[in-house]
Each structure stands twice: as C-alpha cells, then as structure tokens.
Design a protein around this nucleic acid. Sequence first.
DNA 1: AACAGGAGAAGAGACGATTCTGCAAGCCAG
DNA 2: CTGGCTTGCAGAATCGTCTCTTCTCCTGTT
Lengths: 364, 364
Amino acid sequence: MGRAHGRRLGRAGIRDVAAAAGVSITTVSDALNGKGRLPDATRRHVREVADRLGYRPSAAARTLRTGKSGLIGLTVTTYGEEPFTFTEFAYFAEMARAASSAALARGYALVILPGSTRQSPYDVWSNVALDGTVVIDPSDRDPVVTELVRQGIPVVSDGRPCGDLPVTAWVDNDHEAAVTGLLDHLAAAGARRIGLLTGTSTDTYTRLSTKAYLRWCERAGQDPVYEAYPAHDPCAGAVAADRLLARPDRPDAVYGLFDPNGTDLLAAARRYGLRVPDDLLLVCCSESAVYAGTEPPITTLSLKPGRIGSTVVQLLIDAIEGTGGGRPVQRIMPTDLIVRTSSQRRRARTTVSAPRSPEDRGRS
Amino acid sequence: MGRAHGRRLGRAGIRDVAAAAGVSITTVSDALNGKGRLPDATRRHVREVADRLGYRPSAAARTLRTGKSGLIGLTVTTYGEEPFTFTEFAYFAEMARAASSAALARGYALVILPGSTRQSPYDVWSNVALDGTVVIDPSDRDPVVTELVRQGIPVVSDGRPCGDLPVTAWVDNDHEAAVTGLLDHLAAAGARRIGLLTGTSTDTYTRLSTKAYLRWCERAGQDPVYEAYPAHDPCAGAVAADRLLARPDRPDAVYGLFDPNGTDLLAAARRYGLRVPDDLLLVCCSESAVYAGTEPPITTLSLKPGRIGSTVVQLLIDAIEGTGGGRPVQRIMPTDLIVRTSSQRRRARTTVSAPRSPEDRGRS
DNA sequence: AACAGGAGAAGAGACGATTCTGCAAGCCAG
DNA sequence: CTGGCTTGCAGAATCGTCTCTTCTCCTGTT
C-alpha cells in the first residue's frame, strides 16, 4: 500500500471509524446518516464505534460534497463602520433572537455579516458558504443583495424592498394599518390635533408611516403637524421633540416613530409643563419594556419583531429546501398597540397593581 | 481525457478561470492569494479574468483544505428553549455588536449558537466548522466548552469561569472594585445605610458583586440590607424592590445589580412616597440609555460590554492564529460609573441641559 | 438445476480549492 | 562550455465526506 494514510490530525475521521469497526467508509457514512440498506446490528455497531472514537464529521467536507452548509447570513444595515443599527436596538435584538431560534430549530445557524462587501481588507462575505441570507431593510439597489441573487442564493428581506430589488421573499408589518389604527385610538381618546415625530431618511418604514399619517390627516380634516429628524442621531430626537411642542400649533397628542421618542417626548413635555396624558397624549413605536415603567407608562406600538424574525427565517429555509413553491412570497404581519396610561384621558386600570395607594402628590 | 469536467454548476470554478486565462490552476490560486513567484503581469491578468468571470472561491473547499473557516461561534446562555438571556438584553446586544465588529475587522464572522448541544434534533454545533468560540457566562462544568476544548478548539469566555473550566482565556470586569467604588460614592453622597438588590443565582457576577457588598459593609461597620430574587423572572424584580423598601430597617440608598432594577426601584420609591435622591439614593447596573431620561435620571454602573466583546474576540483570534503566546490569558476590564441625579444629594449639573426651568411642580 | 432478484457491503470518483514538488528555461560565473 | 541558481509555471496529491455503481452472496421459484 505504500504510505497508507498516516495519522495526520488529532480528530478521528470517517476512515478511522471504518477501520475500527471493520467495515468500509461507505457503510459508516450510511450507518450514521440513516441511508443505504443496512441491518440494524451493523448500524448500531458503527454508531457505537463512532461514539467511542469521538468521531465528528467534518462540516467543511460535508458542505463541499453536498453543497449545503446549514448557514444563514444575517445582514444588518450599517451606519458608519459598525454593524447593527443603533436606533432600533431592542427591535433588532428581539428580531435576531427569534430568527436565531427559528433557524436553530430547523438545523441552521445564523452568521452575522456586515451590510456591505469589502468593509475590511478581507471580504468576509465570500469566505462563508451560505445557504441563504436574511437582509434587514435593504436599500434601493443593495449591492450585496444583487450579488447574492446573481449567485443564485435565496434572499429574504425584513422590510418591503424598495425599487425592484429581486429578493426571493419579504416580510413586513402593515404599517399603514398600524398608523391608521393608532391615530384612530388617539382621536377616540379625545385628541384634536395629532402631531408626528418622524425621520428624514427614506427607508420604507419611515416613508409608509408618514404617508399613512398624512392620509389620515386628510381624511380627518386635520392639518398635519410634524417634525422630521435624522433618526440615526441619538441626540437629534430630543431636539425635534422640543421643536414639535414649541410650535404655535402645538399638538395635543403625538406619535413618535422611533424607539427613544417616548422618553424624548416625555422629557420635552415636562419642560413645557404639559401633563401626560391630561394635556398631551403620547404613543411611540418601541419594543422596549421600559415604557411600562415610566411615569406615566407610555402606550407603544410594537412591530412584533419576534414574529417577523421567525417568519423571515421560515420563508428562507423553505426557499432553500425547495419547500413551499418556487414563486416569490410576501407576508404582511400585524402589529400590536399596547395601550397604557399615556394615551387615555381617563385614568384607566394600570397593568401593574400598586400594593398601596400611589399618592398622586401635587398633581393638579 | 475522457469526460473532461462537464459544466456542472452555474458559478465559475478555479478551473474555468485557469482555462480562460490560459494558465494552470496553481497559477490562478497563487495569483489571487498573493503567493508564489509570479510576475505582476501574470497576476494582473489572472485577477482580471477572474473578475470578468465573477469567480468566487468556494469557502467550503478552502476550509477543507486549509483547516480554517474564518468562523467564530458565539454562545449565549439559554433560559428555557430560547437562546439569549433576557435580563441583560442591552448588555448582550452591545457586547455582540462589538464582538461582531471586531471579528469582521479581522476577517472573521460570528455564528450564533445555542448554549447546549442537541437542542434540536439536529446538532448544529457539529455541523459548523469553527475556528474558535466565545462563550458568555459559562456554567460550572459546561459540556459545550468541555467538548470544544477536547477537540482542540480555542474557547474564550466572557465572565470568569467557575470551577476549573479549561478555557483558553477569559475576560471579565473588576466587579469587586466596581461595587466598592460605587458604595464609596453613595456613602460620600451622604448614605448611612446602603441596601442591595441582588439575585439568587450563583453565577460569577452575582456572587462576586454580593461578596464585595458584604465585605464593604463589614469594613464600613454597616449591617447588610439586601433582598435577592431570581433575576431571570422579569416580574420578580419589582416585588423584591418593594420588599426592600418595606423593611423596618429601610435603606436610604440602594444599588440594584440588574438592568431593570432602576425602574423597579423608582416605581417602588414612588409608591412609598420616597423622593429620589432626597430620601433615597439610587444606582443600578445597566447599559440602557433610558436612565438618562427618567425622572430623575438614574446613576448607572456600566460594565462596558462593548470593550468586553471586542477584547474577547481579539484574544480568541490571537489564540486561533497563534499570536500572543500560548499560555492562558485573563484580562480584567474596568467599569464606568455614570453619575446622574439619583445618587447626588445636592442637585448637581445634569448632563442634558434643560431649555427652560424644569418646574418642580408640587415637589415638597 | 438454473436463474432472477434482493440484501449487504465495498469501490471509486467527485466536490473545489491549496500547496508541495518538480521541470524547463535563462543567466552568470568559473 | 558547464554547473548552479533563480524565475515562472504546471502536475498531482490531498483535505474528508457523500453517493453512484458494482460486486458477491444467498434464497426462493420455475
């Protein structure tokens, strides 16, 4: 035989198992993968030997052979050099958690990747074998998406893609319905002039939400009252909230599109001596639990990122495995308005029961 | 010749590039990887042809051959079936962001993996080729860590490992110093009896922090006043905060070990009619920015998760690449006390400048 | 008795890159 | 003129697994 395969690495390979079990490589592979025609005795024997040797199949070799890596990319829009977006921390964290969980349950793992190619000297994207990718809020003609699709890799986006980006599928909230419902809620609570705190960027979320607001105003016969600011700037929100409440046509209710707007608006209201909810009704879009504990608790619109993340991954894996038909899929997910004190004129039952009387000292 | 490699896949392989450029496979590989002895002309030519063909080297093949995948595992402690821990959402999110960023900058990507093997029918762990792994808060004799180390894969942990877990390196905060410094700060602000809101679990963070508190009390000649609760239960915190303030030996200052404790304690204080900071000084350990916007703003201890995540990854990659000596490394990272109104008796300068006077309506 | 057919297991390529080794040609010095 | 050195490139082995094909028995039927 010449140089019969010298022991080259510490870990046992399939050949070692075959030798130790006194069978062929084929038999080992079939036994461990539940394929082929083998009597149970052989199967058990091989499995036992493999266990004893601590055999772990090489993921790289399997991937090379089968063409499936079990890896799903998760791309996050990048501000500056950092991955992750800062404005929607809680949203992203929850979405990623659910996505990861859903992937794991189906035997896939998530790989966190930057929003752009060639962010570093190395191109991490082409160093990873991906079965598919989840893209959060892809931009108009996202180069990463374009390239992936060109390579024939399925791409599912969280957020309706702008333009004619050729994603395999997408998932998004029904933003129009959410905003309309929420404005109706405020109006029902007695709001006469509802203001909006929105963003200057042109992503789908901002655009659709603002459009829904404007359309609602038109239908309700109210003049729009809004301030826009660059949402990625953590300080600009407070300033914009202040501007909104400083206007001569000051609104008596405000909806803030971004997570920090709740505290921004609350702080601004305090500065102007406005009581919430008596003088000002407040709602903001947020996934953060802190708004249950603020004074007063603030009504929030939840986009249910968990459901989004889970759905995105399900659709992607379906596309990868060829399940669920070949044609593009889009799925609209409902949102959830969590009504708290800040959007109700009459003091309603609060969720947290106070052990003794809250003592509204000094309040009016 | 026989069946000279029929076109089998859409994507171009290294052979196609070689053929198109009129050189050998070796030359293509060398040209693209900057190895071998090739004149610049050849190198340029090959690169150009590769670009034209849209050639992307197969990550699986490269990994199989070189033994390096460029993938780093990120394991998150699991409560129940879900990955991620809920109590420290902000901590984890920031830590993961920084870790991912640091990895990307050095050409690695992070793979999110469950805290246990065989969480699903598939064992995702053995389906991924990892160069190394980051483990957050490993438990006493973590089976995942043990198995990885047995396979010779470097493991770096965030959090001092309990017991004699054989991690390659670890990074942690100086919890003793942090707690001691913070208690000194409270004492300097006039606290006579400082209470602690702590957890019932036995992880390193809780254990070290509590021990530091007890030792400080002993040195300061104060009786310890503390309540412990299961930190993973989101509701239990509010109850524990209430218990702490209901005690006959009610503390005049409290440190809360967990992120939500700030709002928990603030709410409890309101229920008992205690003014913060006048009647009660407050500090909690948190990475959340909301505490800058609460009423009053709350002093927080930041563990600087970003620095931790970044350092963990650096150490891991050093270990993978053989840089930085072979022996185990442990690194202690400083914490950051962000002093706000809640821990200062005399109204100090707040970080956020108020455009007009805050109007402390009705307050005493 | 001969043969079909199936069960059990082994052989032998791929998969697509990296890389060790080796060959041919050119150049210079002895 | 020749031997050694460098330069430029090609051949072919290898990484570890999956899987298509083949091969050998063995049994049961006509």
